[in-house]
Design a protein around this nucleic acid. Structure first.
Lengths: 193, 193, 193, 193
DNA sequence: TATGAATGAGGGTTCATTCAT
DNA sequence: CATGAATGAACCCTCATTCAT
């Protein structure tokens, strides 16, 4: 087999693994099931990934890289910071909806020590994007003079909650717009509003 | 053995199970490990719980009941809705911090079909508390005239994100007060502020 | 409790054990099941029988003694040896039909080494009854001059086959009379018949 | 491993299983014991048989097919029906003697519901062979005009008794010839004999 | 005498991983 | 590169038996 098909094999395995991991959980999705779903032999699995952990890690890394790329792209050309925040939220939530399995898996294996560092780096990077937007918003006088780091954490956490809600309570969801509006306007009544 | 020690045994098992489930996940925490941690024999475990599923379910139910009671208590005597929202958040986050294991476990087994209904009921109930507070806030003219159900979902989701952040990124946390303030005031700059 | 109820307990246990052993087999009928069926505690079981083997042995012994007594009674007053053979067969088959469970159990645990001697003694004794009848038949000129021991073995074996058929193929049974007739008359055609 | 050794493995397992099942009974012969006796790993057992039941069933089926073939072969070329009956008995008893384990096992698991149908079919088929012989005997005027079905059942049952005797009381056996003679001639004295 | 909670060895079965082909 | 039979540790759970009450 040539290199092309090797890469395709790997992709097929990753797709199958994501599907099965998120449906059954890491432990209950067996290497045999993954191999079958990927249309490859068990031995073949081990030619591409040295063990189950590594398969999981590679899978997470590849999906997180893909996701990070999309969010980055989505905000880089937007000048208005309020709009940028909204765009970040929208792309994140859309991705979460389209890839519930990934979110589920990510939640399911929270306790994993072996992918922890990678995940934290990812979160930090995403939060960094939000920080940049907020800083810009404050500089241009559109946002209140809040603590940038703290506020970014909060917004990221809000998004995290939304994403989690997508897989936990898909029947009790709310509109991202309304969410963004709450974040931007707050709950308290203002004069003349 | 008398009844007292029987109940104590059960409690010890639940504590051990919570600890191990949340550290290793449902699958990787074996009944043997739990038995050892609880200072009981394997057979003894099965005197109290007919199988692993039931142990998990009982554990979740008991902790969720306990938690629901506390949040309920914390808000029932507070008249000011803004204060009540803050109280709800504070007690939730405090509980989450003190019982990270429970949160972790709850996240880890997202994909579980058994126990799902129980969890959804719990979420609904908690969200109901927030709805009541918002309704009160609108009635008394303190909150803007928002959609109650939607807003409750959003706030609950914000809290969910916060709670999740506690176990995912304990080093990147923010203050509940600042979070509450953002929810109440929003991010946008207002006249005279 | 007085002695009377002690004996009744023991009887209840034996009945329950026979029922469960023959339904599920020795291994799959647990001491707990037997205790429950007998309306006694597990500990109580061990007051009457020092372990599972002994319960089985006592059970078999008591049933075999009962059975041996009945066959003995049934033939002792019959003068005609052909009739006596028939009576022996009839009482044996009736007992087998009424106590299929016992037969089943007896068959199921063929391989037991621990009750073997008892069972062999029982078989020998029953065969002895048949031998006596045959000897009488030859002496009185009613039977052909066959080898007594051999013929008794054969007849006993024929009965054994019939008894086994009762539990193995209850739907493919035949009449004891026809069986007796074959034994007495043979299959080959004779002159003038 | 090549296909050859795969089949050999399976055969070794079946032999070991037969040996252990008949010595200890289905329940007490553990998969571990069978694996050891077959010189294979526990996991290996499950490559050939998906569970213990299936191992038992396959074992019974294969042995019964083998046995049925032999009896069929033994009678098909014998013209004289009396001789054919004797041949059927002889081959059956020889097989039983050589494969006591199989008979023992077959007896031991009488109560099994799984496999019951298979066994009944086997018995029916064997009985059918005897029926054919009797019919032939009557047609050619060698046998008395007996009820074919009934008589076949009886003869089969006689053989069943003999076979059982082989494993229950190997020390109290009788000659098949004498048994056949009894069946053919009967016990009662006739004129001029 | 009677109870039943407690024990722990052992049951059937699964599965990540290896390696001869 | 690819296969899949083979391994054996570890899984969940059962059960005969004991013993403090």
């Amino acid at each position: 087999m040539n290199k092309r098909s090797g890469i395709e094999s790997k992709k097929r395995i990753i797709d199958a693994a994501l599907r099965l991991f998120s449906e059954y959980g890491y432990s209950k999705a067996s290497m045999r099931m993954i191999a079958n779903a990927a249309g490859i032999s068990i031995g073949g699995l081990y030619l591409h990934f040295k063990n189950k952990d590594e398969l999981y890690l590679t899978l997470m890394k590849s999906k997180m890289d893909d996701f990070a790329g999309r969010t980055m792209d989505s905000v880089k050309d937007i000048a208005d910071p309020a709009e940028a925040i909204n765009a970040f939220m929208t792309v994140t939530l859309d991705y979460a909806k389209k890839h519930k399995g990934l979110i589920l898996l990510q939640g399911r294996e929270l306790g994993f020590t072996f992918g922890l560092e990678m995940k934290r780096k990812f979160f930090k990077k995403q939060r960094g994007i939000i920080e940049d937007i907020i800083r810009c918003g404050i500089r241009t006088g559109i946002f209140r003079k809040v603590n940038v780091r703290e506020t970014a954490k909060i917004i990221f956490s809000v998004i995290r909650g939304f994403v989690l809600s997508i897989v936990v309570e898909p029947n009790a969801l709310f509109s991202p717009e309304e969410c963004g509006s709450l974040i931007l306007n707050g709950l308290l009544k203002r004069d003349g509003k």
